[in-house]
Computed example of a mutant assay.
Amino acid sequence: MDLFSRSWTALRTAVDDLTDEDWERPSGCTGWLVRDLVCHLVIDAQDVLITLVTPAEAEPTVDAVTYWRLVDPPTGEDPLDALIPRLAAAYGEPRWLKFHFDDVGSAAGRAARLADPDVRVATRDEVLTAGDYLSAYVMEWTLHHLDLIAHLPSAAGPPAETLAAARTTLETIAGAPFPEAFPDRDALLVGTGRRAPTAAETAALGGLAARLPFVLG
Rank of each mutant, 00 (worst) to 15 (best):
M1A: 10
R6Y: 01
W8F: 11
T13W: 08
A14F: 11
A14K: 05
V15T: 12
D20Y: 06
D20Q: 09
E21Y: 01
E21S: 13
R25F: 05
R25D: 09
P26G: 08
P26R: 08
G28S: 05
G28Y: 02
W32F: 10
V34G: 04
L37I: 06
V38T: 12
H40M: 10
D44K: 04
D47P: 00
V48M: 12
T51L: 07
T51S: 14
L52T: 05
T54G: 03
E57H: 10
E57L: 14
E57Y: 03
E59R: 15
V62I: 14
A64N: 04
T66Q: 11
T66Y: 11
W68R: 09
W68L: 06
V71Q: 00
P74H: 07
E77W: 04
D78N: 15
P79I: 05
L80N: 07
D81N: 10
D81H: 12
A82P: 00
R86T: 09
R86I: 02
L87Q: 12
A89P: 01
A89M: 07
A89F: 02
G92W: 07
E93W: 02
P94M: 05
R95K: 13
W96E: 14
W96S: 06
W96H: 15
K98C: 11
F99T: 06
F101T: 13
D103Q: 14
A107F: 04
G109M: 12
G109V: 11
A112N: 08
A112K: 09
R113S: 13
A115V: 15
A115Q: 06
D116A: 10
P117V: 12
D118H: 13
D118Q: 15
R120H: 15
A122P: 01
R124C: 05
R124F: 15
E126T: 15
E126R: 15
V127I: 13
T129R: 04
A130W: 05
A130E: 06
A130L: 12
G131L: 04
L134R: 06
L134T: 09
S135K: 13
A136Q: 12
Y137C: 09
Y137L: 15
V138C: 12
M139A: 14
E140N: 14
W141M: 13
W141C: 14
T142P: 09
H144Y: 12
L146N: 03
L146A: 02
L146S: 03
D147L: 08
D147A: 02
P158D: 02
E161Q: 13
T162L: 10
L163C: 07
L163K: 05
A165K: 08
R167G: 05
R167I: 10
T168V: 13
I173F: 03
I173Y: 02
A174P: 03
A176N: 09
P177G: 11
P177Y: 11
A181Y: 00
A181H: 05
F182A: 04
P183G: 03
D184G: 04
D186L: 03
A187D: 07
L188W: 01
L189M: 14
T192R: 01
G193E: 07
R194E: 02
R195N: 05
P197F: 01
E201K: 00
E201Y: 02
A204N: 00
L208R: 15
A210V: 03
A210L: 13
R211L: 12
P213C: 00
F214T: 00
F214H: 06
G217T: 01
